[in-house]
Write a protein that binds this DNA or RNA. Structure first.
Ligand SMILES: [Zn+2]
Ligand SMILES: [Zn+2]
Ligand SMILES: [Zn+2]
Ligand SMILES: [Zn+2]
Lengths: 168, 168
DNA sequence: GAATGGAATGTTATATCGTAACATTCCTCA
DNA sequence: TGAGGAATGTTACGATATAACATTCCATTC
């Protein structure tokens, strides 16, 4: 299979600035809808709007920015509305919380397991979710006697795209 | 007689519930004072008090709980006071922020590099800071092309001590 | 022992993030 | 069609963090 570079972001690669992001968002919403149907849970209008707001970009978005988007057309939703939707979306693996930024990011593979790590670009804000087996293995072996339940791995730095353009 | 476990916590081991924690705190404050002198920076009374509050235990403490401690004797410090001290203590490696809890924890080896990871016990709240070489290596290799600047690795679960006592 | 200038702290106000509690509406299914 | 649970509306509040500017402290210099 020939590598494609202009399709929607492939797992493990950092999202390029000029990729077809509309496809990312469309795909994510479609996946969520399909998975909700399969799981017998309701993908309501608010949940869809919140997920859509999160998929506006590959940068994490804060709950109150999501709220502003919800209310942009005159609605007067309260913060609870957003946090409840986020709770649902996280429980279903559609969204991850970026702890180091108190913000939220869409998940590109909500149907698989979630032993993943995040790369966060300090310059453009873009976040890439990776699932590196060596990291997972190392983490699993790092804490003998400790019963691991969840992991938060967030790596900050400069992404390849920003690095290439920083010598100007 | 069980093996003696009452010395102060050794690197890489999870702090035991009954260890001599007064020694942890005393040592941490003494180390901080010595390092500040060596670095030509001021270890002021407020900074000392904040660091002492943080070393009350091996569980992360929130900024406002630190503030309450500062103000316990009648003072009326504002939150800024605590956050400024925390900024200084973090910059000097005496304190780490636990992103997943918006709280702060003392560092047991502020004179070394800080490529470390945190184990957080869900039951007792205790946090162990470890520096696992395999994890560091795996993380370094996980993101080719990405210029890493800082890492947040926080593993939640149940510590060995709580696990041993959970069968009641 | 003043003058000075940066570091540290004091102070007020506000921004940002998150949840409790209870009322109402909506949807499903018997 | 009428429960009954899920979802949302609404009000109020709690928790975390920073901006901006005034004042004080302290080491250095003259
Ligand atoms: Zn995209
Ligand atoms: Zn970037
Ligand atoms: Zn201790
Ligand atoms: Zn424990």
């Amino acid at each position: 299979m020939p590598p494609r570079k202009t399709g929607h972001a492939k797992a493990q690669s950092f999202p390029a600035p000029n990729h077809d992001h509309a496809a990312c968002a469309t795909d994510a919403l479609a996946r969520a809808e399909r998975l909700c149907r399969a799981r017998g849970v309701r993908f309501t209008e608010i949940r869809r709007c919140v997920l859509k707001a999160i998929w506006q970009s590959h940068a994490p978005i804060g709950a109150y920015d999501i709220l502003a988007g919800l209310n942009a057309k005159g609605a007067r939703h309260a913060p609870m509305v957003v946090y409840r939707a986020l709770e649902f979306l996280q429980a279903n693996g559609f969204v991850h919380r970026v702890a180091s930024q108190n913000a939220f990011i869409g998940c590109a593979h909500p149907d698989e397991g979630h032993d993943s790590q995040f790369l966060i670009c300090r310059k453009c804000g873009t976040v890439a979710e990776i699932a590196n087996a060596a990291v997972s293995t190392a983490l699993a072996n790092a804490a003998p006697g400790f019963a691991v339940e969840s992991r938060t791995v967030e790596i900050s730095g400069v992404c390849p795209h920003c690095k290439d353009h920083s010598h100007a």
